[in-house]
Computed example of a mutant assay.
Amino acid sequence: MTIKKIAVIGSGYMGGGIAQVLALGGAQVVLGDVDGRVASQSRERLLQQAQAFADAGLFPADSRARLEANLTAAGSIEEAVEGVDYITEAVPESMEIKREVLGRISAACAVDTIIGTNTSAIPIGQLAQFVSHPQRFLGVHWMNPAPFIPGVELIASEHTLTAHVDTLEALIRSVGKVPARVADTPGFVANRLQFALYKEAVLVVEEGLATPEQVDLVVSNAFGFRLALFGPFAIGDMAGLDVYASSYKTLAGTYGERFAAPDALAQLVEGGNLGLKSGHGFLDIDPEKRAELLAYRDKAYAALSKLRAELGPPPGLVG
């Protein structure tokens, strides 16, 4: 199925950013919100923002003209979803609001229209009960800010047709984003990891080990710096899983079982699979690409360091 016309329901910060990306990608996008006035105001805001982004070199020079051609505002949610191929719901992260809006959407649109929800953490299976014909419903979790963050999680419930996930994956790729299919569980992958880190960071502060400013300095200039370019498994395999296992042993001595080495990690190390240094870890990295990969890593880190120096410290934050 080819997606040509899209409704974005919820035209705030997230929904507006999603609408910009989809419209700039060539789709005809209709904004729907609590009423036509809000949707029209959001459209004008997005046009002005696109011009500002273009002036700053963040969007293509013709972005405002492309949005003017591809982005419209509807008088109601029901009007917005009429005759579209795909609907993405991007209302606030509230079960009550999503229940009402998803009910209105699925009652008003055609029965074969694909419906996506931009929930950050609510399981798709729970939201599917508010949608008629739940086989056309899935999670499409964009990251904030949508115009600039590449990743989009695709989450199918037990009801979702695989063909619809295929269609949305193709759409996401066509607008320059990076889709990843993940399981339907609270928080999915991105927010399960993100909130685990955040909780541990708060505990570090509560225990008096560092200030919030110092924690941010450590993260953004250490492992967080690496995470801008590689995921945790690639970083671990390059560092050496034996190093990780040894570190977990030290951490567990102080913090207990919650910092014990995961069984999968311990089994790999026991089997002599230490990552890149032994040719196999969690990832199957081609040993013949070892030198090339490490050269890429070093070049990428140097380029990122240069970029950060050019940008300077974030305004208002410790650099």
Rank of each mutant, 00 (worst) to 15 (best):
V152N: 02
F130M: 06
I155G: 00
G151H: 13
T117Q: 11
V152W: 00
A121Y: 15
A121Q: 12
M143R: 09
F148Y: 09
T160F: 11
T117M: 11
I155N: 00
C109T: 03
F148E: 08
T113S: 04
L154F: 01
L154N: 00
Q126P: 12
T113L: 02
T160M: 10
Q126W: 15
F137A: 00
E153A: 01
I122P: 04
V140L: 09
S106Y: 07
E158I: 14
S120R: 10
P150T: 08
G151A: 13
P147H: 12
L102C: 02
Q135Y: 08
L102N: 03
M143I: 08
Q129F: 12
N118A: 07
G125H: 11
A121L: 11
V140E: 06
A108F: 13
C109K: 02
F130G: 01
P123H: 09
G116Q: 09
T162P: 12
D112W: 14
E158K: 15
Q129E: 15
I114V: 05
E158C: 13
V131F: 02
P145I: 10
I105V: 15
P150E: 11
D112R: 12
V152Q: 02
T160V: 08
M143F: 10
A108E: 12
I155W: 05
H133Y: 08
A156R: 00
E158F: 14
I124D: 04
E153F: 03
H141Q: 02
G116A: 15
T113W: 07
V101F: 12
L127S: 09
G125T: 09
H159R: 14
A107D: 15
P150Y: 09
I149C: 05
L138I: 00
R104E: 11
A107T: 11
M143D: 05
A121I: 14
S157L: 06
E153H: 00
Q135S: 07
T119Y: 15
I105H: 14
S120C: 12
G125N: 14
P123K: 08
L127K: 10
I114L: 00
G116I: 08
F137E: 01
H141W: 04
L161E: 15
W142N: 03
L154E: 00
A128E: 06
L127C: 10
R104G: 07
P134W: 00
N144L: 07
Q135V: 05
G103R: 10
C109E: 02
Q135T: 06
T162I: 12
L161R: 15
W142K: 06
A146C: 04
L102R: 05
T162V: 14
L138V: 03
A156H: 02
R136K: 09
E153V: 04
D112N: 13
L102W: 05
T119R: 13
A156D: 00
Q129Y: 13
S157G: 08
I122K: 08
V140W: 04
I114Y: 00
Q126R: 15
M143W: 11
E158R: 15
I149V: 10
S120Y: 14
P145E: 08
T119F: 14
F148S: 05
I155F: 03
L127Q: 09
T162Y: 13
H141R: 02
A146G: 04
A156C: 01
A121F: 14
E153M: 03
I122L: 11
I149Q: 04
V152E: 03
I115W: 06
R104W: 13
T160G: 07
L102G: 02
I122S: 05
N144D: 08
L161C: 13
E153R: 01
F148T: 10
